[in-house]
Design a protein around this nucleic acid. Structure first.
Lengths: 219, 219
DNA sequence: CTGAAAACCTAGTACCCACTAGGTTTTCAT
DNA sequence: ATGAAAACCTAGTGGGTACTAGGTTTTCAG
């Protein structure tokens, strides 16, 4: 894990790349990750092939494996990269309570613009349900973390009296996550007829006493 | 489609098997379908192999392909078989309104006893999100049908005044389906910590004015 | 400019894939 | 009992898989 090259030790400005990769290496890695992301998104991990990825970036399979030692390592790199990106998007570090929930609605809106990423997580999370799958532990950890974060948010919302009676934060969190996941499958099958953010807002407004409508309403 | 042998034309009791298969053929087909179901459940369609299926029933790949002309045909047979079974379980034909919703809770209870089937639909529905997937059309049709059925139920429930204000049947149906699908992923990742029927009941009681607790409460 | 490592390639390994051709064995209606 | 078809097999085809060994080209610090 975390055996990536690059990542200069930050000595002087001219000191970079501590006897490691070359100037364009990091860019190549990013290209590869983008391609791997695309492939795993549409075919899943097991059915997606290194050749598909290599072709997309104009490399041979062997050339690809010079950057990532194995298919599994490539998957892990894709997952952690995307997690970092979405964490930045959600600005989770700061948002709490209602703000976090509103952030999730926004996230859902954003998701409608990136079917590829949505597909990646749908296919991979289902696939990784098998304990033998290399991403099994990753998704267990991920769900634990996400659920924990959302439970906290609902607890906070409840403390402020914005939760409808009879709604338990734990159950609400699980349901919200399940709803968002499930909506994605329906949306991927038929983008046009599913208003993901709309449904999430409807759910949140059904279990809280707050409004969640984002900037512009649905068509 | 529906090119299965067996299925006697029902003439006399001794007349069966109209110049088609032998006595044990149907049993073999069932064996094969059970094995294919297991394989596709854990590995998905694309990564699951005919060899895996053939080995499970003690056949060669060629022997298997004598019963089902292609991998795709095998998948279709597995899907339609399981659909028939779950339709019988739900006794959908009769149940309407509240009864249908209660039937869904029961279905969810039943699902907790068959992780294999749950896994099949999770993995396959995610995979089939790709328009190129052989089960793509199947799942589009399936979701349309299920949603239609549930919309009807919520509409009926609303007519009887058991729907909370502001709840639209269409949105409720979509959310219910998404919830059930999403819960399955979480449950498959960690059976012990997710009470699927409990969450479904909680959701239904949040958007209706009825009680849905089944026979025995959760632990 | 040089030389050492990074980047990348060709070629190959050993294996798995869905599917086919054509033969052998088993079933069973006549 | 027999013969024709169903059931099943062996042996392949042409293709794909992840990954490796070992060489060539490119980069770039000293």
């Amino acid at each position: 894990m975390t055996d990536t090259p690059a990542a200069a030790p930050a000595g002087g400005p001219r000191r970079g790349r501590a006897r490691g990769s070359y100037a364009k290496t990091e860019a190549r890695r990013q290209e590869i990750l983008a391609a791997a992301f695309e492939v795993f998104s549409t075919s899943g991990y097991r059915a997606g092939s290194l050749k598909d990825v290599a072709d997309k970036v104009g490399l041979t399979q062997a050339g690809l494996l010079h950057h990532f030692p194995s298919k599994e390592a490539l998957l892990e790199a894709v997952l952690t990269l995307r997690d970092e990106e979405s964490m930045i998007r959600l600005s989770t570090a700061e948002a709490k309570g209602l703000d976090l929930l509103r952030g999730l609605v926004e996230l859902t809106c954003y998701n409608t613009t990136i079917p590829g990423l949505v597909s990646l997580y749908c296919v991979l999370s289902a696939e990784s349900t098998d304990p033998e799958h290399p991403a099994h532990a990753y998704f267990q950890r991920r769900y634990d973390w996400v659920r924990g974060t959302i439970v906290e948010a609902f607890t906070e919302v409840g403390r402020q009296g914005h939760l409808r009676t009879g709604v338990a934060p734990m159950a609400a969190a699980r349901q919200l996550i399940a709803l968002m996941d499930g909506l994605q499958v329906q949306w991927l099958l038929d983008n046009a007829s599913v208003d993901m953010p709309g449904e999430v807002v409807a759910f949140l407004e059904a279990i809280t006493t707050e409004k969640f409508q984002p900037a512009s309403g649905p068509a």
